[in-house]
């Protein structure tokens, strides 16, 4: 049989594999990702008065709330960094983590109707969600940089050039990696167990208080030493400190802590990809 000697292009069996990525295939779908990012922006701001300005308004309002509650009322010291910059940097980076996790944690649940009708590599959906949130983050980051320049020029905030500035992309990258990694794992879990959906939303809110978003690590070691180990165990902690260190030259972080975060992020993402790939095909029967 001459026909059977030719190789098959594809095969569908009962076993799902841990590692089934094919980069050419993902590349072939690159426009799908670009299109989804565009779509998300259009959908979020169509028929709104202020349009994409909302991307900036939301963190600004959060900033005002945090300043009033945590700075004025609770009186958390932000060191030499102006409170506005300190809180805004925390909010912007936390939003990025929050969105990259929250935006991918319900992948299967949200896209079940499309997943059950057409095949494409499932990972594209979390990737496009992450890209959308990354773009939003970049816009907010730009506002943060502008604010920093303003404080430096007009408010006498001392800002000297220091080599830590080059660590900024690393901090952002690792925060995104952890967000996506957790998101992928939870996307599999939330598809199977509905009760986790509430847990995710609640957990995210509590998790924020274990991350130095509204306080510097220096503050926790002074005022609440009993909680220090919890905060230090959080792999996001060194990244938030690194983020501020690279922008403002002030933060508490050691190389060992950074290595811990980086290792955590990479192991997490790798195992998340394995789980996502292995479970992805089976989940369509469940959701």
């Amino acid at each position: 049989m001459s026909t059977n000697e030719r190789k098959w292009d594809w095969e569908i069996g009962s076993k799902t594999s841990y590692w089934g990525w094919s980069l050419p295939e993902l590349w072939a779908y690159r426009h799908l990702v670009a299109n989804h990012v565009r779509r998300d922006f259009l959908l979020n701001y169509q028929q709104t008065v202020l349009g994409p300005v909302w991307i900036l308004i939301q963190p600004i309002f959060t900033l005002v709330t945090y300043i009033v509650v945590f700075y004025k009322l609770v009186g958390i010291s932000t060191g030499n960094v102006p409170a506005v910059l300190f809180y805004f940097s925390g909010i912007v980076l936390w939003n990025f983590f929050n969105d990259s996790f929250g935006g991918t944690a319900f992948t299967f649940k949200e896209h079940a109707h499309v997943f059950s009708k057409v095949y494409f590599p499932r990972i594209l959906m979390p990737i496009s969600a992450l890209s959308t949130h990354f773009l939003r983050f970049l816009m907010q980051l730009l506002l943060l940089v502008l604010g920093t320049v303003y404080y430096w020029l007009f408010q006498g905030f001392e800002l000297r050039f220091q080599p830590w500035i080059f660590a900024l992309p690393i901090a952002i990258f690792l925060v995104g990696t952890i967000g996506l990694g957790l998101g992928l794992i939870f996307s599999v879990l939330t598809a199977k167990y509905r009760d986790l959906i509430n847990f995710v939303n609640l957990g995210l809110r509590l998790f924020m208080f274990l991350t130095p978003v509204i306080y510097p690590v220096a503050f926790i070691s002074e005022k609440a030493a009993w909680a220090q180990w919890l905060v230090q165990l959080n792999p996001l902690t060194p990244l938030f400190e690194l983020f501020r260190l690279s922008l403002f030259g002030e933060g508490t972080v050691t190389v060992i802590q950074l290595a811990y975060s980086a290792l955590f992020a990479i192991v997490l993402l790798f195992s998340a990809l394995l789980v996502f790939n292995k479970q992805g095909d089976k989940l369509i029967d469940v959701v």
Partner: peptide, 10 residues
């Protein structure tokens, strides 16, 4: 390729 078969292959 939307769902996996329980047995057999394509």
């Amino acid at each position: 390729r939307i769902v996996r078969p329980t047995r057999g292959n394509v």
